[in-house]
Amino acid sequence: MNRDVIITCAVTGAGDTVGRSPHVPVTPAQIASDAIAAARAGAAVVHIHVRDPETGSPSRAVELYRETVTLIRDSGVDVVLNLTAGMGGDLVIDAEDPLKPIDGTDLVNALERLPHVEELLPDICTLDCGSLNFGEGNQLYISTPDMLRTGARRVQELGVKPELEIFDTGQLWFATVLVEEGLIDAPALFQLCMGIPYGAPADPGVLAAEVNLLPEGANFASFAIGRDQLPWVAQSVLAGGHARVGLEDNLYLSRGVKATNEQLTERAVEIVQNLGASVATPDRAREILGLKERTGA
């Protein structure tokens, strides 16, 4: 397999994982340190969320992104920065009064999800391409077509590459519409997210179907959560894509063994190389993804 594979490390996410592993980074310094370690281990891209340093809860605070990004950029370690822009889409409803949001709701409009992107101008930011029943209970993730068009247009104006997050096939359908409407610059970048309840299951047949629906010339990566994460590195590469690992999606290196982001990245590197592919450097990743060069960042 003679091609270069981009490895992304998603270092912390927004899930309720802090209490389940001592290795999940919380503070900007911890998140930056993990991102730098993952980059040194072979990740060309690091995907960044931030958390409230006091509680470990997910946050949209620009100052936390600023501190984290500054630490990574000042480290001298070359890595492609991918900031989430998906925060602010959570709606938890009262089953008896569905028009009444309850604790856990963090729902803002499309532009209010982007102030950290506007200030920090990362190489990549995510665009979650549809609404979803997010697991059990009454939690939903809200991302409507009009919200997505507004967000895509603003990200395009900023010159940031959107990573189109796809949690189900209908979202992929709509993302291709964004491409057709000229709101996504070529080459489009898709992240096929598998196994998140209740989105697309982590099934090779589903992945193959989604890959077949991608627009011509698009780049894609794919990941699966939990125990499927590391096997899915091989699955994604064999399907022609790139790969993502990290504590956002999985806490274990093997059964009963808690992982670090560095260890998960090292294991992904081994898998890619054992398949006969090469691990892309950050510069090679920029070339593949068509990223705009930045100066003074």
Rank of each mutant, 00 (worst) to 15 (best):
P98D: 06
S59T: 06
L81F: 12
H49K: 07
A61W: 01
V80G: 10
E63C: 11
L99G: 08
M87G: 09
A38Y: 09
V46R: 02
S59E: 00
V50P: 01
A39G: 15
A44H: 04
V69Y: 11
I48H: 02
R66V: 12
R73P: 11
N82D: 13
I93Y: 02
V92G: 00
D74Y: 03
P98M: 04
M87K: 02
A95N: 01
D78P: 07
A38E: 04
V92S: 00
S59Q: 08
L83P: 06
P98Y: 05
R73W: 10
G42D: 04
G88L: 10
L91P: 01
G89F: 03
N82P: 05
D90E: 13
G56T: 08
D90P: 00
A44E: 08
T55D: 10
D52A: 03
R51Y: 12
L83W: 00
D78E: 15
V80D: 04
V77M: 11
V45S: 00
V77H: 12
D52L: 04
H49Y: 06
A43F: 06
K100Y: 00
T70H: 14
V45L: 09
S75H: 13
V77D: 12
T70M: 13
P58C: 08
A95D: 04
I72V: 15
D97E: 14
T68F: 06
D52R: 07
V50A: 11
L91Y: 00
S75G: 10
E67Y: 11
I93H: 00
D90G: 14
A43G: 09
A95Q: 13
H47L: 08
K100A: 02
A39L: 09
L81I: 14
E54W: 08
V69I: 15
V50W: 01
T84N: 07
V69G: 05
A85T: 05
E54L: 13
V62R: 10
V69R: 09
H49M: 13
D94I: 08
V92R: 13
V92H: 04
E54T: 11
A43T: 12
I48T: 09
D97R: 14
P53E: 00
I72K: 02
V46W: 00
A95R: 09
G88I: 08
P98N: 02
R60K: 06
A43V: 09
T55W: 09
L64I: 09
D94S: 06
V46M: 04
D78F: 04
D78L: 01
R73M: 09
G42F: 00
V80W: 06
